[in-house]
Amino acid sequence: MKPTPANLPPVLKRLGELIGPDLERTNAIILEQLNSQVELIPKLGAHIIESGGKRLRPVLTLLSAKLFGYTGRDDALLAAVVEFIHTATLLHDDVVDRSDTRRGRATANSVWGSKAPILVGDYLFSRSFQILVAHADLNVLRIIADACAVISEGEVMQLVATNDLTTTEEHYLEVVRRKTATLFTAAAQIGAVLNHRSRAEESALAEYGTLLGIAYQVVDDALDYSASNEALGKNVGDDFQEGKITLPVIHAYRHGTPEERAFWSDCLEKREFPEGALQRAIQLVRERGSLDYTLARAKTFADEAKAQLAILPDTPEREAMAMLADFSVARSY
Rank of each mutant, 00 (worst) to 15 (best):
F84P: 02
L138V: 10
L40C: 11
L67D: 00
S152R: 09
R142K: 13
A325F: 12
H255D: 06
A136K: 04
T61F: 04
I151V: 13
R331H: 09
F184L: 10
S152M: 03
R127P: 00
F125C: 03
L124K: 01
D224I: 05
R127C: 00
A281E: 00
I131G: 05
D220A: 10
E83I: 09
G213S: 11
S328K: 10
T166P: 06
A186M: 08
D224S: 13
S152G: 13
Y123D: 02
L78I: 14
D146G: 14
I118D: 12
R261A: 01
G233A: 14
P9W: 01
K66E: 06
T180A: 07
P21W: 05
T166L: 06
D314G: 04
T107P: 03
H86K: 06
F184H: 04
R25L: 06
V95T: 05
V329M: 02
P21A: 04
P9E: 13
P10M: 09
F327G: 02
L23N: 14
P258M: 11
R57I: 00
R271M: 09
R98W: 12
A186D: 05
S36L: 15
H135P: 06
D146L: 03
Q241G: 15
T182H: 06
Q279D: 13
V175Q: 01
T210A: 11
A206N: 13
A187D: 03
V140W: 00
S99T: 02
I190M: 08
R199D: 12
L138D: 12
Q37R: 04
F240N: 10
L15R: 04
R261L: 11
K306F: 04
L284F: 03
A134Y: 10
L295Y: 09
D238R: 12
K115P: 13
S110K: 05
E304Y: 15
M321I: 15
D100T: 14
L232F: 14
M1C: 03
K270V: 09
A227K: 12
L8N: 14
D266V: 15
V111N: 02
P9I: 05
G191D: 15
P313G: 15
V285E: 01
K66V: 04
D146W: 08
L56Q: 05
E260D: 12
M323K: 11
V133W: 11
D74S: 05
I151A: 09
A204D: 10
S203T: 03
R197F: 03
K270C: 08
P9Q: 13
A181G: 02
A88I: 06
E201T: 15
Y208F: 05
R254V: 11
P3E: 11
Q241C: 14
P9C: 11
E169W: 06
P21H: 15
T182M: 13
E272A: 13
A80T: 08
V160F: 13
V285A: 00
H92Y: 01
F84R: 14
L173C: 09
Q279G: 14
L295R: 06
E174Q: 09
R14T: 03
V329P: 02
A305F: 11
E287L: 01
L211R: 02
V95P: 14
G243P: 02
A65R: 01
T180V: 10
Y70F: 07
I118E: 09
I131H: 12
R271A: 03
G154P: 07
A200F: 06
A108T: 05
P258L: 12
L278R: 14
